[in-house]
Design a protein around this nucleic acid. Structure first.
Lengths: 139, 139
DNA sequence: TTCATTTCTGAAACCATTGCAAATATAAAA
DNA sequence: TTTTATATTTGCAATGGTTTCAGAAATGAA
């Protein structure tokens, strides 16, 4: 759990004015590592904030992604979800239960890719899909 | 270029009846390595086939993906595109020109991921984004 | 041929996401 | 403090790629 004052500072450092809504949304994605969709964040915060618009959630998360504070995941092709953890890691999506899990990955994994000369890499996403251990045991 | 008869056999082996439309769509994605969207395939084949529905293209591509004959790429979160090459390779998307490029990758790159015990991996996608050599030279 | 099954089609529905313009809040200036 | 300008939020409507639907056509089996 990160202190609100620290989160506030991060937003300001990124040039983002820390409004009540923005700070609440930022705190949510930084403290919940559940890869929520915009809709999940909206449902979780609308009571706490009294009033909140789904549009604001979409706009704010996009703002965070553009600023590099949050990752956008497109591992599921039917919706977008967000990850407050911007460190280097892979994602696994279970075909059975839909859960998205973080996986550790060696920081130099790009050495496995050849033909990158002349390319400027800004972002790398490794998506794995299959059956998670829990669902596998059930079958 | 693969012979039609060979493509036909592949469809039958996968349990898919090779209708005129399916064979044409399959031939297109197997011979064009341009990562087309359903719409691009539709535009390319509607003249050749006389009549063709966009719905048929969507249904057919989904059928191929489910059968493992074609890959679905979600590297661009605003649309889906397809890749007839199902061998192990990575994809790069240029932020500037939008082009999607194939990149070679070592077949054992999953060894870079830890904590996979108990997981059954059915699919792996490595997406890289940034600026391609051509766009970089222009700036 | 006849019947059952599969496939194809266009139109309509779906739904996550975005655009818009008004309302509100915040900061700066007077 | 009050005024003014700017930034942010809001609700609703619209967008657009994708999926669904029911009927029509084609295919295969008997």
């Amino acid at each position: 759990m990160i202190a609100r004052s620290e989160l506030k500072r991060e937003l300001i450092n990124a040039g983002i004015r820390p409004s009540v809504q923005r700070l609440a949304i930022y705190e949510y994605v930084k403290s919940h590592h559940t890869h929520p969709t915009a809709d999940v964040v909206y449902d979780a915060l609308r009571d706490e904030l009294g009033s909140l618009s789904l549009t604001t959630v979409y706009n704010t998360l996009k703002l965070f992604v553009d600023a590099g504070l949050v990752q956008l995941l497109t591992i599921d092709d039917t919706f977008r979800c967000f990850d407050g953890d911007t460190s280097c890691h892979a994602h696994f999506r279970c075909d059975s239960c839909g859960k998205i899990v973080d996986l550790k990955i060696k920081s130099d994994f790009l050495s496995m890719v050849s033909g990158l000369e002349g390319f400027e890499i800004k972002e790398a996403q490794l998506y794995l899909k299959g059956i998670c251990p829990i669902c596998k045991r059930k079958n």
